[in-house]
């Protein structure tokens, strides 16, 4: 207890001045004590964090799952429930190999209609936009290849310009109107009426083309996997979500 250096000091410090060094030490504190103090403090801190984490984690996870669920159902209208499929060894699987982290695997969300038929697939993907990565989720029908919806999950695009990719409803609605894929972006008014045209946003051409590119790239990547077949008759797994 080196009280001599921890004496009460009621004076204040001018913070602009460098902190004056403490009174010279008379005895060196043993390394053991230093380590022990920090270890005890660390243990206490860890305990506190664990306690709070136990309390907040379920809330946080629930919120995240809720957000994902809302997004999936939004881009897959008319879907009754969905299952998460992981890409394991280039095949779709409902489960990941034992002992692996769930976040290490890329996945798609397969939606089923009331008759338990596959009626839509949602894919989330991010690519760099004008400012930072734009993360979107979109749904499409694997038999017709038509899109059923798109939602921007995360974007830091320029406020007032690039953020129109999720604020400009005229742009967003086009993805819900069932355009065919692969999409092509056209300037408003320049379209030729093809079923795969998406009108880009004036002044935010890059951001709107990023959305279109993400969808096209994701489909290019996933179509072969999906066409190889989605394991039928899904077993009810813990990842399964049902609409409430």
């Amino acid at each position: 207890m080196n009280e001599e250096i921890m004496k009460e000091d009621t004076g204040t410090h001018d913070p602009s001045l460098p902190e004056s060094p403490e009174t010279p030490l008379k005895e060196t504190v043993s390394t053991f004590r230093l380590v022990a103090t920090l270890a005890v403090a660390g243990a206490l801190a860890g305990l506190l964090i664990v306690l709070v984490n136990q309390h907040t984690k379920p809330i946080i996870d629930k919120y995240k799952a809720e957000q994902l669920k809302i997004a999936v159902y939004e881009v897959l209208p008319g879907v009754e429930r969905y299952s998460t499929y992981y890409l394991v060894n280039d095949r779709l699987s409902l489960n990941i190999p034992e002992g692996n982290k769930d976040s290490d695997y890329r996945r798609i969300y397969v939606g089923y209609d009331i008759l338990d038929e596959v009626s839509g697939i949602a894919i989330s993907r991010g690519e760099s936009g004008f400012q930072d990565v734009v993360q979107i989720i979109f749904g499409f029908n694997p038999t017709t290849g038509k899109l059923s919806g798109m939602k921007v999950l995360d974007s830091k695009e320029t406020p007032g310009l690039g953020d129109k990719i999720f604020k400009d409803m005229a742009f967003v609605k086009q993805f819900f109107a069932g355009p065919e894929t692969p999409l092509i972006g056209v300037k408003i008014g320049a379209g030729k009426g093809k079923p795969n045209e998406i009108d880009t946003i004036t002044g935010a051409t890059i951001s709107s083309k990023v959305v279109i590119d993400i969808i096209n790239h994701a489909l290019e990547e996933w179509r072969p996997v999906i066409d190889r077949g989605i394991p039928k008759a899904p077993v009810v797994s813990k990842f399964e979500e049902t609409k409430q």
């Binding site: 920090l38 403090a41 964090i49």
Partner: peptide
């Protein structure tokens, strides 16, 4: 009183980091 002078900065950081983590969660 319990924080040795030599490790006080680490101890402060530890304390602050703990509360930041709590605030974060």
């Amino acid at each position: 009183r319990f924080i040795p002078n030599e490790v006080r900065i680490s101890a402060y950081i530890l304390v602050i980091a703990t509360f930041v983590t709590l605030a974060d969660m």
